[in-house]
């Protein structure tokens, strides 16, 4: 008994020393900026008005929480994350099933489909904005003109949809990559047996393929959620959050406050709210998905 107990203490010490660098660094990474952000959020601190300073109490929070733009930004964040998740999971599953079939040039076609994942967000946003969705010289405008349709000014009339399309294009390959690997591990005998029993392709998809992909889909949702909640470059390059607030998500709203209005206090209050939100999402989502993975 005593050796086991001492073994556990030694194990505890080893755990501590082995984990210390990673945990310590991440703690610092979180806590130091967090404490500073918290401190700033209670200050009157605007870089354009250095004379106005001092303790602001909860004024920054009051202004922010009563400002309708915060709620617009939160709504946009949810719409962006939600639609991209739906599009990439549904599209990714269908594409994975398609790319799993035998056809000519399968290897190269797969490389083409996953390519967008490796492209810098800034570059893909620039290419989409200038060459695909440009209302005069873009490819979409040209295709519309072939059918005698008027060109759509994408970023003026459908700003959030345009951003969603670009982000979906970037993340669809990621979903395909993961789901394709998952499908490849599907048991062929099981599918064959189901077919012998008279199951159609749809039944096989819904009763065999989809349940098999459950864990992989969880992974896609979790990873994408982490990155989609903080989308920035795509909005910065294409619409700068506009027109109005149409494409301003939470990350971009804080950026506007901090770097364009020079309102350090207000931006910090926004940062604190974003951090709280991130933790709420992390708590529920990560926990659910992680449980899904454990089983």
């Amino acid at each position: 008994m005593s050796t086991r107990a001492s073994g556990r203490t030694v194990g505890g010490l080893r755990t501590l020393s082995l984990q210390a660098p990673a945990v310590g660094l991440l703690l610092m990474w979180m806590l130091i900026p967090l404490v500073m952000t918290l401190w700033f959020s209670f200050q009157r601190y605007n870089l354009l008005m250095p004379s106005v300073s001092g303790f602001a109490g909860v004024d920054n929070y009051y202004y922010l929480l009563t400002d309708p733009s915060l709620w617009t930004a939160m709504g946009n964040t949810l719409l962006l994350v939600g639609w991209v998740l739906v599009a990439t999971v549904v599209g990714g599953t269908l594409l994975a099933v398609l790319l799993q079939q035998e056809f000519f040039g399968r290897g190269v076609a797969r490389l083409f489909v996953i390519a967008p994942f490796f492209i810098m967000p800034t570059v893909s946003a620039l290419v989409w904005k200038n060459m695909m969705m440009h209302p005069v010289n873009g490819i979409f405008a040209w295709i519309a003109s072939l059918f005698g349709l008027p060109a759509i000014d994408w970023f003026a009339s459908l700003p959030l949809t345009s951003v969603i399309i670009i982000v979906t294009w970037q993340w669809l390959p990621f979903a395909v990559l993961i789901l394709l690997t998952a499908i490849q591990s599907l048991d062929d005998d099981q599918v064959e047996a189901a077919r012998m029993d008279g199951a159609g392709p749809l039944a096989i998809f819904f009763y065999i393929t989809l349940p098999h992909l459950k864990r992989a889909i969880s992974v896609v949702v979790m990873i994408e959620m982490i990155f989609l909640l903080t989308i920035f470059a795509e909005i910065f390059v294409t619409t700068s959050g506009g027109p109005g607030l149409a494409t301003t998500n939470l990350a971009y709203l804080i950026y506007i406050r901090a770097l364009l209005d020079f309102d350090v206090g207000g931006a910090s209050a926004g940062g604190v709210i974003a951090i709280i939100l991130a933790n709420i999402v992390a708590f529920f989502l990560v926990r659910t998905v992680a449980k899904n993975l454990e089983n």
């Binding site: 979180m30 974003a274 991130a278």
Partner: peptide, 27 residues
């Protein structure tokens, strides 16, 4: 050498990735 806190530590680590970078840019 898993302990009771291992899962929590992992989840906490992942949650740090959900913070928008802009929130901590100034500090």
């Amino acid at each position: 050498l898993p302990t009771k806190r291992t899962q929590t530590t992992l989840l906490w680590m992942l949650s740090t990735k959900m913070l928008p970078s802009v929130g901590v840019l100034l500090p």
